[in-house]
Nucleic acid binder design. Structure first.
Length: 425
RNA sequence: GGAGGUGUCGCCUAGUGGCCUAUGGCGCCCGCCUGCUAAGCGGGUUGAGGGUUACCCCCUCUCGCGGGUUCAAAUCCCGCCACCUCCGCCA
């Protein structure tokens, strides 16, 4: 939810924000009108209610006919108050729905436009030149089969398309990556977390995943529950309805959790392998801080993501996502994209978003500071999304014989293995 | 899933229809006192919204949440949620 103050005092900024995302500004005008309506209905209700309270006080003291007259008047007043209250509630809800539909105002620095209008901030490392080395790289599905690491056929048999089993060294790889990521996060001062992956509507709604993103969310039939698409959801909702001590900030959490995505609208995209799947595990970083500090915190999250990719010895680039490709809650987003040899292009491995006070307003997360109580800022960033990271590692570090070199930093987490050897021909 | 109990301000707590504009304590903040500290004394201390706006001030809502009864609800009634105890089931 954007700051209602901003909408009222500077609606042009909000309109500009809509335009930058390629969205209509109509909702802004509708929300402004609803705000007017809401305020006048509040005034009307409060006027009647004050009168009712005033008269109510006189009744116990009144006697006889005077009392009868008062009772007569308050009886009709009582009905008016009820009506006014209902009208106010309705106006309030209309306003709130419109306000909630407005996405966070993109940062000035974020590029305008859609998916393809990102800005490349930097490229780190050099994509490996397999032609120069004299062999054709195998893709991760083939490598996964040779190593006995990934079983997509049985994943499809048991759970359907876009499911997989990690087996043997594949399973070992996930556990190694998770432990390594958690060690890095712990070392950076994060509190480690294992959050629930099944949440109530409030958490989903509060993080902005029930708007246009709702198609991508699994809902549990018969219960008002959702499977999270990222642990950002339970981590943001963790402190909902709380007022945190401003001196305790920033609060940083790193969570390991499964993630579930319907991938609606992605039919035909990335159908091969485990680049795009309905379920995967992830270690996610999450920060609570002040709006003023959020930009610096965003850079720190990006820094930890880069540190992570460098330890895995991957070639990657950082992009500044265009406004139209930001989630509802985000004001700015950086993606780290690793080079995938068999695709000949960079693919998103991690992503970090600054949601400023957008989610905090929806979830009622505030901080107490010397100058009062204010909504906090929330930020999230991927440390490791398992399947894509495995894809990048296998494809990047493969050798001509189908074996895969283990990056030095990962070796201690893989029982000291330096090479993953093929188990089938 | 069944039965019973509980839910009041950061924490504990008083409050059984109008004098609740919610009590008292702890903690916290400000001040006084004081070699230092502690103690003592005085004051302050839920949050949201509206009006007004330099500051102040006024009003409404907020006793787990939502309805209802009533001129009037923390208080009575109904539903929901959370926690506790017991039973059943279960990894």
């Amino acid at each position: 939810m954007i700051d209602p103050r901003l909408l009222r005092d500077d609606p042009d900024r909000v309109r500009a924000g809509q335009a930058k995302r390629g969205l209509s500004a109509d909702v802004v005008d509708h929300a402004l009108a609803a705000d007017e309506q809401r305020r006048s209905s509040i005034a009307e209700y409060e006027r009647l209610r004050a009168e009712q309270k005033q008269l109510g006080k006189q009744i116990p003291q009144a006697q006889g006919e005077e009392k009868q007259a008062l009772l007569e008047r308050t009886k009709t007043l009582s009905a008016d108050v009820k009506k006014a209250e209902a009208a106010q509630g309705e106006a309030e809800q209309t306003y709130r729905e419109l306000l909630m539909a407005i996405p966070n105002v993109a940062a000035d620095e974020a590029p305008a436009g859609g998916e393809d209008d990102y800005a490349v901030l930097e490229e780190v490392g050099t994509p490996r030149d397999f032609a120069a080395e004299g062999f054709e790289p195998k893709d991760h599905v083939e490598l996964g089969r040779i190593l006995g690491a990934i079983d997509v056929e049985r994943g499809a048999k048991v759970s359907g398309a876009r499911f997989y089993y990690l087996t043997g060294v594949g399973a070992d790889l996930e556990l190694a990556l998770v432990n390594m990521a958690m060690d890095q996060a712990r070392g950076a001062g994060f509190t480690t977390m294992i959050p629930p992956a099944l949440v109530k509507p409030r958490a989903m709604e509060g993080t902005g995943f029930l708007g246009q993103a709702a198609d991508d969310v699994y809902r549990i039939e018969g219960d008002e529950m959702y499977l999270v698409g990222t642990s950002e959801v339970p981590l943001a909702a963790y402190h909902s309805d709380e007022i945190l001590d401003g001196r305790s900030l920033p609060l940083r959490y790193a969570a390991f959790s499964p993630c579930f995505r319907k991938e609606a609208g992605s039919y035909g995209k990335d159908t091969r392998g485990i680049i795009r799947v309905h379920w995967f595990d992830k270690v996610e970083m999450f920060s609570y801080t002040t709006v003023e500090e959020s930009e610096a915190e965003h850079q720190r999250l990006l820094g930890w993501e880069k540190e992570w990719l460098e330890k895995l010895e991957l070639a990657y680039r950082v992009i500044d996502t265009a406004a139209g490709d930001l989630g509802l809650s985000a004001q700015r987003k950086f993606d780290c994209e690793a080079w995938i040899p068999t695709q000949g292009r960079y693919r998103e491995l991690t992503s970090t978003s600054n949601c400023t006070d957008f989610q905090a307003r929806r979830l009622d997360i505030r901080g107490r500071f010397e100058d009062g109580v204010k909504p906090l800022a929330t930020l999230n960033g991927t440390l490791v999304a398992i399947p894509r990271t495995i894809v990048a590692i296998l494809e990047t570090h493969q050798q001509a014989d189908g074996s895969v070199r283990v990056p030095a930093a990962l070796q201690p987490y893989l029982q000291g293995r330096k090479i993953l050897e093929p188990v089938v021909g």
